[in-house]
Design a protein around this nucleic acid. Structure first.
Length: 495
RNA sequence: GGGUCGGUAGCUCAAUCGGUAGAGCAGUGGCCUUUUAAGCCAUUGGUUCCGGGUUCGAGUCCCGGCCGGCCUACCA
């Protein structure tokens, strides 16, 4: 702005319509001068939009009076009458405002409202000539002023960065986003209903831990001043939930945030929501039934369908009994030779090169095999598949298969080309558990939780356990492109 | 962390070979009593992400930085 302009000129320049914030602030000032302060007003709702709409049956033209409130998201002014739409928690509803019904002075003020303002409206329902249920306003009141303009009404907000950083704007203008987060909430609610109905106890365990175990991931570290010691944010729920099995709560579950100090990607957010459930006197086969029933019930109740459309390719079919496949069989099929597991590491590396996957030669033998699984097989498992009999090195917390000491009694459920839920027959032999931990600790991937081992020595009942990444579940249930589209406020670099 | 693509008005997007930065929506002023992205007339609005450089001249080319998308790496 030109420094030579006097303050008066600057003000008049700023109010010519170019600076929308200044125009709105000026409107607010004028309202206050006339004794109206929208920020001190309120409104009684008798209905939300959707409920109000349903009060007018198809064959009727006039309905009862309702009182609603929300944000103006469409505003079509005419000389002596106007249409507007307000958005509330249930959706949108149209209102029709006539000068001859609210009065000349009120109508003049009404025309000064802006897109984005919050108003309350009261009046009877009627049907317009195009059939839309609409409130014929008898009374309206501005109850909060929006001083900044909304994003464009037709294209909405498309800039990813702004969608994530200013999620509130995304939610106001992008219907699909609003619906996706409503679906997420419904999904989590149905998960809880499922476990409660099976007599599981919902519990909460510490997020701040002196030892963060239960998975191999780098934790976020922090310092607790009062005790002058370092803590970590939890990376899994597992070890505390198992302590509760020791304590006699023999069916427990928790839905909670875990934190992993690792990279960001389409499928990774450093804080994400994990479900873990433990059921005594069950095992990984029991968890298989539980997991399939859980996802089927959640999809049916939260989405109303077991067939999930995808942006590309055939839909995901959740009905029926899901496929089971042994890890080794999938590997042998993928590499095209029966003797894969007898091959020396060098031959495996060679073969991996043929399959055009990058494999670090420094990896352990089983890690080369697992790279084949993760890079060649996993993304092809679109339809629900329980991958069973996984090599024992991949998880220290599961029981070893009785008939094959090289594998463990676990499954990894893959859907939509990614791992959704692992489940095990939980290791409850304290000596075997300690040994498995010691091997892992050597690699500095998992901290040794001595107190957990002490708990095991007190005796943990045989149990099946299952963990599920809720965000990834929501990705495929809502056909989202990115984990960030399922998390209201995803982690971003500070701007 | 590496590669790659991008950042232009409040929002969605243009701008030819390096040659006066434009449009739609929103806003502002009018007209309009059943609109549906309402319509019609007029009109305001720019640190082209930031900082350097090349050039008579840079949104455009070069270098550095910031932020983001995608791919990749790390990731039981």
């Amino acid at each position: 702005m030109n420094k030579d302009l006097s303050p008066e000129k600057e003000k008049s320049k700023s109010l010519d319509g170019s600076d929308q914030v200044a125009v709105r602030k000026d409107k607010l000032d004028r309202m206050r001068e006339s004794g109206i302060d929208p920020f001190r007003a309120n409104w009684d709702q008798t209905h939300v939009s959707m409920d109000a709409v349903s009060l007018l049956p198809e064959d009727e033209e006039v309905g009862p009076e309702v009182s609603v409130a929300g944000r103006i998201v469409a505003f079509r002014l005419m000389g002596k009458a106007s249409f507007l739409k307000i958005l509330d928690r249930a959706g949108k509803i149209q209102s029709y405002v006539r000068k001859d019904e609210i009065g000349e002075d009120e109508y003049a003020l009404f025309k000064k409202l802006d897109l984005g303002d919050f108003i309350g409206i009261r009046g009877p329902l009627f049907r317009t000539k195009t059939g839309e249920v609409t409130i014929r306003a008898k009374e309206y009141r501005l109850v909060s002023k929006a001083l900044r303009p909304l994003p464009e009404k037709w294209h909405g907000l498309t800039d990813n960065e702004q969608i994530y950083r200013q999620r509130y704007l995304d939610l106001v203008v992008n219907d699909d986003s609003r619906q996706r987060f409503r679906a997420r909430s419904q999904i989590i609610r149905e998960i809880r209903e499922f476990f409660w109905s099976r007599d599981f106890l919902e519990v909460e365990t510490p997020m701040l831990q002196s030892v963060s175990g239960g998975a191999a991931a780098r934790p976020f570290r922090t310092h607790f001043n009062a005790l002058d010691c370092d803590f970590s944010m939890r990376i899994a729920l597992e070890l505390h939930l198992k302590r509760l099995l020791v304590g006699g709560f023999d069916r427990v579950f928790e839905v909670g945030r875990v934190f992993r100090n690792e990279g960001l990607s389409r499928r990774h957010n450093p804080e994400f929501t994990m479900l873990e459930a433990y059921q005594a006197y069950s095992d990984y086969r029991g968890m298989m039934e539980l997991t399939q029933s859980l996802i089927q019930q959640v999809a049916q109740n939260a989405l109303g369908t077991l067939t999930l459309d995808r942006t590309e390719g055939a839909p995901i079919e959740l009905s029926g009994k899901w496929r089971e496949a042994k890890y080794k069989d999938l590997i042998i099929e993928a590499v095209g030779r029966d003797d894969w597991f007898e091959l020396p590491k060098e031959a495996k590396l060679e073969k991996a090169k043929e399959l055009k996957i990058e494999v670090d030669p420094a990896l352990e033998d089983f890690e080369v095999t697992n790279d084949v699984f993760e890079k060649v097989i996993e993304h092809t498992l679109i339809q629900p598949t329980f991958v069973t009999h996984i090599p024992r090195e991949l998880c220290p917390l599961a029981k070893i298969t009785e008939t094959d000491s090289s594998t463990i009694d676990v499954f990894e459920l893959c859907i939509n080309g990614q791992e959704i839920a692992p489940a095990y027959s939980e290791q409850n032999d304290p000596a075997v558990q300690r040994e498995a931990f010691m091997k892992q600790v050597g690699e500095e991937t998992q901290e040794l939780d001595d107190d957990f081992l002490t708990a095991l020595e007190h005796g943990m009942p045989p149990a099946g356990g299952m963990g599920m990444g809720i965000d990834r579940l929501v990705i495929f249930l809502t056909n989202a492109a990115n984990i960030r589209d399922t998390i209201l406020f995803p982690t971003l670099r500070p701007s």
